[in-house]
Computed example of a mutant assay.
Amino acid sequence: MTTPGVAVVGVHGHGASHVRNVARLAETGRARLVAVADPRPAENLPDDVQVFAGLEELLKATEIDVVIISTPIQTHLPLAELAMRAGVDVLLEKPPTASLAEFEALSAVISETGRACQVGFQAQASKATLTLASMVADGRFGEIRGISAVGKWVRKAQYFQRARWAGRRTLDGIAVVDGAVTNPLAHSTAAALLLDGSQGLDDVRSVETELYRANPIESDDTSTVRLVTGRGTPILIAVTLCASEHLEPRVIVHGSEGRAVLRYASDTLEFDDGTVRKFERDDLLENLLDHRADPAVPLSVPLSATGGFTKVVEAVRVAEDPARIPAECVRWEGDGLERHPIVLDVEKWIDRASDELALFSELGAPWTQQEKTIDAEPRL
């Protein structure tokens, strides 16, 4: 069989890791890196890799089997549709779309073309996530009181200046829906939904959002979101990009007969008895290639398995603009591109939200006690 040809669209930032991964698979003969596309110059590519400014030119000039799309959120739908209508399978970075309407449009394209579309939620392919999901389904933790997703990250000014769309809810009239919940810490929500077996579009019954920002941006950087699944499970997401230190995200199962913590970034599970288990994870591109060779091999993250997550994206999209966290609740550190806010005691409030499955306002977090301010500050 001919070795599948792969192209990468968007080779800077996270896209660079995709280029490296295809190069790794090329060394074992599993794939060929045929071309890349990016409006900005690409560096450190093998001499035989063709370079294009955009996907349309790439598709006209090359023959490829798979394209990896690691581009701004608002470009995902048009680029994925372009590729699939050209007969190419797609590995699409998360979040797959910026709205429910776009999700439905992309689902229709997949149905019409019969192409495969894998979504880049790596945590879904972790044996740690899948093992814990199986344990929950088997009743190992008794009745599930709820699931919480906790993220305490630090993002500096350079993060929001890396691209025009960063930190934006819309750009040039098009939905972007960047933000702590929907982009950098999106894996937390998606993993929590998988643990509950509630990944589908119809598996999420309701979504409540409380979106705040300490940075001078449009999108949220400190938020709680609570959703209830069709199973009746409350899932509480408590995240910030304004922590005092950068910590690994956690997804916590709260059961009547025990508690478990998933640390998906390191593929580990922690249990009440102190046991810590480390797992492997499947590679999403390898899984897509296996699926192409044998359709009986299921995709790890088909688009349909991100419907529940898209319900959350849609709720964030239509929510009121994030409220500004009052200055007295924020301490700033660093200068220039290193400058970043720390929301005072945010870790304490996130932990309480996780334990009590409660929104910040229900707990009385200080930045929720004042009248919401949604003014337009200069951007970073």
Results as ranks from 00 to 15, higher is better:
246 H>T: 07
247 L>F: 00
247 L>V: 06
248 E>M: 11
248 E>R: 14
248 E>N: 12
248 E>A: 13
248 E>V: 13
248 E>C: 04
249 P>W: 04
249 P>E: 07
249 P>I: 06
250 R>H: 12
251 V>D: 08
251 V>S: 03
251 V>I: 15
251 V>N: 09
252 I>P: 05
252 I>L: 11
253 V>K: 09
253 V>M: 10
253 V>I: 13
254 H>S: 02
254 H>E: 06
254 H>A: 07
254 H>Q: 10
255 G>P: 02
256 S>N: 06
257 E>N: 14
257 E>K: 15
257 E>S: 14
257 E>P: 01
257 E>D: 15
257 E>T: 11
257 E>M: 14
257 E>I: 03
258 G>M: 11
258 G>A: 08
259 R>W: 01
260 A>Q: 08
260 A>H: 02
260 A>Y: 01
260 A>C: 01
260 A>T: 03
261 V>N: 00
261 V>E: 11
261 V>I: 15
262 L>Q: 11
262 L>S: 08
262 L>R: 10
262 L>K: 09
262 L>A: 10
263 R>C: 10
263 R>E: 14
263 R>H: 09
264 Y>C: 02
264 Y>D: 04
265 A>F: 07
265 A>N: 10
265 A>L: 12
265 A>P: 01
266 S>K: 08
266 S>P: 01
266 S>I: 14
267 D>R: 15
267 D>E: 12
267 D>L: 05
267 D>N: 15
267 D>H: 14
268 T>L: 04
268 T>Q: 14
268 T>C: 03
268 T>S: 11
269 L>C: 07
269 L>M: 07
269 L>Q: 10
269 L>F: 05
270 E>C: 03
270 E>K: 00
270 E>G: 04
271 F>H: 08
271 F>W: 04
271 F>R: 03
272 D>G: 02
272 D>T: 11
272 D>Y: 05
272 D>H: 07
273 D>I: 11
273 D>Q: 04
273 D>L: 05
274 G>K: 08
274 G>W: 01
274 G>P: 02
275 T>R: 15
275 T>Q: 15
275 T>D: 12
276 V>K: 14
276 V>L: 13
276 V>N: 06
276 V>G: 07
276 V>C: 11
276 V>E: 15
277 R>I: 13
277 R>M: 15
277 R>W: 05
277 R>G: 00
278 K>V: 14
278 K>Q: 14
278 K>D: 08
278 K>Y: 02
278 K>N: 11
278 K>E: 14
